[in-house]
Design a binder for these strands. Sequence first.
DNA 1: CAGTGGTCTAGACCACATC
DNA 2: ATGTGGTCTAGACCACTGG
Lengths: 243, 243
Amino acid sequence: MKTSSPTFQPLYLQIKGLVERALEAGEWGPGAAIPAEVALAARFGVSQGTVRKAIGALADENLLVRKQGKGTFVATHTEERASNFRFLRVRRNDGQTEYPGSRLIDLRRARAGAETARRLGIRVGDHVFVLRRVLDLASHPAVLDDITLPAVLFAGLTRARYAAYPGSTYGFFEQVFGVRMLRAEERLTAVAADAVSAGLLDVEPGAPLLAVDRVSFTYGDRPVEVRRGLCATRHVHYWNALA
Amino acid sequence: MKTSSPTFQPLYLQIKGLVERALEAGEWGPGAAIPAEVALAARFGVSQGTVRKAIGALADENLLVRKQGKGTFVATHTEERASNFRFLRVRRNDGQTEYPGSRLIDLRRARAGAETARRLGIRVGDHVFVLRRVLDLASHPAVLDDITLPAVLFAGLTRARYAAYPGSTYGFFEQVFGVRMLRAEERLTAVAADAVSAGLLDVEPGAPLLAVDRVSFTYGDRPVEVRRGLCATRHVHYWNALA
DNA sequence: CAGTGGTCTAGACCACATC
DNA sequence: ATGTGGTCTAGACCACTGG
């Protein structure tokens, strides 16, 4: 079953698209096992090898996780304790691996300004949630996050529900609101601490801070989170690998 | 030709290792084409599919570059004009793609201190080169780089030769000294500009700067460059993708 | 045209996890 | 023992490049 045309697209990419759509439609929930390769091959009428390539591509994009002998599973932000460092680039300088504690400072409804609306792909004036929190690492306040979310996707978000959730924030979003963060883009700059940030991060006003501006995307590359993190880099740093 | 053992290693990984060693030995120079897959398959006594997997893994690590219809080539830092942004994460805020101009400030021989020696895997007191330069972007000084190199690997490095080379620094290292940078690790922090940095970057002393500490690795994960970049993030930022 | 990498298949077998 | 993903093979054919 081949399709030849001027705009050639390999069969395995078509299969990949089908699996991707099934994932987006929620055919298999986060953490669940998808059907075995042979089963998918039968379902799509292609060979196992072709399904393998499609699944491999999705695994490379961290949408799926393969586990030899067990199956292939829908990636999840919960129980990702190990690979969760994927979206957490702030590490302790002493090399110890520690998950930051999170203190919720504020959560309020607001309306999107021009810049936020543009980055989130919503209209100016649309409702958003703005969540402010402080992450603690190495017994010090390390990051002040301001997280902006389109209200329509996070209906029912409250301080209590946020505080009650035990896992990571993205695990919370995924499990409670069905919003899966798949990738993100960040811009880093250096800024001077203002009075409020300085107070929350326990530094002097004017102290240099690492500003991390993030936009996170879900299926279809739709932006669903805008976040600014201000990081006091005394006991921590932002880690990156260039491969 | 299979090898089964308690410490199981797939055949394609063994082939990958063999190709990697051939690359390190310089059997095919940077930019050159390696033998066709069928030829390599014959040489190693395996099927083409196994060679493909090995080469694919090396291509994923950016050691090789595949070009359909043409062949597979040894990756190079010269003529990498497009993918060279791999090691250049500082971008203009206005989105324009521009290659920074480079001004050599100083180049001198020195001896490795404890910290440098540790990070470069050399002995304290070993000779190193310390190269200071300023990168200009958007018509402003953007980055002040201090690059430390083990002298033994870069024998003959002079201001004149550095200045005379037209391409990227890593292209220079690769072409002139045969040192190929394959990957790098970076730690980012925010610092306050001292008098010298402020002068060179045209900012006020005490202004917040983005400090980028990089260690670059060549074959065998041997560290061969330590660099600190101080970045004034007025018209530029550090870009990163979390996938 | 010939040569290259890229796709797809069918089948055999291996390693791992679970029952 | 069974089912899963992982490896390996052999061969056919497709898409791209360049002479």
